[in-house]
Design a protein around this nucleic acid. Sequence first.
DNA 1: TTTCTAACA
DNA 2: TGTTAGTA
Length: 113
Amino acid sequence: MAGREEQDEDGPDERAADPSQGVYGISVVSGLLGTGVQNLRAYERAGLLQPDRTAGGTRLYSPEDVARLRRIQRLLTDGLNLTGVGRVLDLEDDLAEARQELEQLRDGGPAPD
DNA sequence: TTTCTAACA
DNA sequence: TGTTAGTA
């Protein structure tokens, strides 16, 4: 029955419910993206993302990191190089932040007369 | 698991 | 330049 939300915790459990918390190992992410672990490290070296690390130093990729990695591959296949990908990701991140600020201004911004 | 090096398209 | 492969 589906009465219990979490009966068995197989693999990455979402009990944390934190999309920014690293839960996937590099091998798991490499399988999800269909690429080698070496590429994932290359992306990190390029500064495209910084996955969390355990006390032992093992990389832990969060769902957000996986989504970002998918965008990275998308941009790479689009013809961009790692530098261009990092540029786009940085701009997109900045754009998301700007949109958040804009939303705040619209919601509870300075009441116009 | 990590890092590095080498080679290929 | 990016990816793959092998190695310690």
